[in-house]
């Protein structure tokens, strides 16, 4: 018998998504993306000058990502300032987005992506990547495609799509597993893979397929948000 999700969702059901583009007038590109109660806001500035000069790359622009939580986005107030966790997420986010952007036309410049979590209910890095992907597109950055991101988890023996906080903290059976994934939309190319938990190799293949299906839904939400901003 399949496990019951506290939220009442089916095993493959994503939380209600919300996406809006163009939320920060000063930025070259911006977007909000939410999975249920997890809300991420992203801003893109660039291509712009990169200081210090020694960091410039004469063959291409560089992508620089910064992710963090707002102090009041979590129950236990987060002290201001980057944590090790946010530094790691900033880097994997950069790696998740780099394969789609083409920055060779902008040597010696930087494209800055700023991602902040307004409200956290697990899946923050995946919401962040979805928001950042929208913000990069909005900013007119040359991109092959959008990047979509979702986390797939396991509650005891059942695979679940879009893990929320209650599920992240699940304590029964084999314990929780959380597998955030990002991929280039409509391709077989994965740009983010992280895992915490216990799964058998064959199950990874199933997880990738579940992620594919979820990302198709996310792509439609992202596409709609971009098309809507031009009204």
């Amino acid at each position: 018998m399949a496990i019951k999700r506290e939220s009442g969702r089916s095993l493959t059901e994503i939380r209600p998504m919300m996406a809006k583009v163009g939320v920060i007038p000063n930025a070259d590109g911006s977007a909000i993306f939410a999975f249920g109660d997890t809300v991420a806001i992203a801003a893109v500035y660039g291509p712009r000058q990169l200081h210090p000069q020694h960091m410039q790359d004469p063959s291409t622009g560089i992508l620089r990502c910064n992710y963090d939580l707002l102090s009041f986005s979590v129950s236990d107030r987060k002290k201001p300032g980057p944590s090790r966790r946010s530094q790691e997420i900033s880097k994997v986010t950069e790696w998740a987005l780099s394969p789609v952007v083409d920055l060779e036309g902008f040597p010696n410049t930087v494209i800055d992506v700023q991602i902040y979590i307004l409200q956290a209910d697990a899946g923050t890095r995946t919401a962040g990547i979805n928001a950042a992907s929208l913000a990069l597109a909005h900013a007119g950055i040359p991109m092959k495609n959008l990047v979509c991101s979702i986390s797939v988890g396991k509650l005891d023996k059942d695979l679940v799509v879009d893990v929320d906080k209650a599920e992240e903290d699940f304590k029964g059976g084999e314990g929780p597993t959380d597998f955030p994934i990002a991929k280039i939309a409509n391709t077989d190319e994965y740009t983010l893979l992280q895992l915490d938990g216990k799964i058998q190799p064959e199950v990874v293949k199933k997880i990738l397929k579940l992620a594919d299906k979820a990302c198709e839904e996310i792509y439609e939400v992202q596409k709609k948000a971009l098309k809507e901003v031009v009204q």
Binding site: G29, F106, A137, H138, A139, G140, P142, V230
Partner: peptide, 24 residues
């Protein structure tokens, strides 16, 4: 499309013009 923008056909030439974004 290689970017977000307005696609237009000028005869057989396809272009995507930017709508937003920094000055290039």
């Amino acid at each position: 499309a290689s970017r977000f923008g307005l696609a237009e056909e000028l005869g057989k030439l396809i272009k995507v013009l930017p709508i937003f974004g920094a000055f290039i």
